[in-house]
């Protein structure tokens, strides 16, 4: 169990501390340093992953052109990132709306699978039901080690789906798994900073995909198509 101690930084750590102003100044200074650190990690990661993002976006474009849809998933905060992916793709601020959904939102499915089988199958079982060869699996994890994501990627690979992981630390098991065609890694060991840059990676990937569709392979959907 890891807990941090910041006590050494403050002269009054006991219960008789009364002046909040020095604490507020320290908090603001700390927040600025972290903001700066997050910004630098974001930029360095986007620079390092530039070519990889272009490759993944092109692969994704081919799947969408073939009528595929995207499934996003993750656990905890990464589940909310998966929801973010689904919302961004289906209801974009600009560009084409694309078929995508999060596998972390249906509480009936999640609790049924967890209760009846186990939490390790909550995503793989859904892909078994919905996934087709033209589809895309995108999963986010800060550690890259979540068992249910690895199981889902194995299932997606069996189906023939495009598999894209977004991971942190050194990439974890996701980066090493043969079931993943692509794994974008945020090289940091802070869960919060990893998630912040993973959000930027998702946005960069989405934007690259949009320009891929726009410039070369625009999907001309028939009028009134769903």
């Amino acid at each position: 169990m890891t807990t941090e101690s910041t006590a050494f930084l403050y002269p009054f750590i006991e219960g008789d501390e009364r002046d909040a102003e020095s604490l507020l100044t320290d908090l603001a200074t700390s927040a600025e340093a972290k903001w700066d650190q997050s910004e630098r990690l974001r930029q360095a990661t986007l620079d390092r992953c530039h070519d990889q993002i272009a490759t993944v976006a092109a692969d994704m474009a081919r799947r969408f052109e073939a009528g595929g849809q995207l499934f996003a998933f993750g656990n905890g905060g990464s589940a909310t990132d998966a929801d973010d992916v689904a919302q961004l793709f289906t209801r974009p601020p600009w560009g084409q709306a694309l078929p995508a959904r999060s596998l972390a939102t249906d509480h009936a499915v999640l609790t049924a699978l967890s209760n009846d089988i186990g939490f390790d199958v909550v995503f793989s079982r859904q892909l078994e039901a919905h996934g087709r060869a033209s589809d895309i699996a995108v999963a986010l994890s800060t550690s890259g080690n979540s068992e249910n994501l690895l199981k889902a990627f194995a299932q997606a690979a069996r189906i023939g789906m495009l598999t894209v992981g977004i991971s942190g630390y050194d990439g974890g098991r996701m980066a090493a798994s043969a079931a993943l065609e692509h794994c974008l890694v945020v090289r940091s060991d802070s869960v919060h900073r990893i998630q912040e840059t993973q959000a930027a990676l998702v946005h960069a990937l989405w934007a690259a995909l949009q320009s891929e569709l726009d410039t070369e392979h625009r999907i001309d959907r028939p009028e009134g198509a769903p």
Binding site: R40, G77, D189
Partner: peptide, 25 residues
């Protein structure tokens, strides 16, 4: 969230660890 690897960075003044190629900001 459930990725429960401990955060290795101290809460104040963490450095960029393994991050390579940082940009001035």
């Amino acid at each position: 969230m459930t990725d429960v690897r401990p955060d290795l960075t101290p809460l104040l003044g963490d450095d960029l660890g393994a991050l390579a190629g940082t940009h001035p900001a």
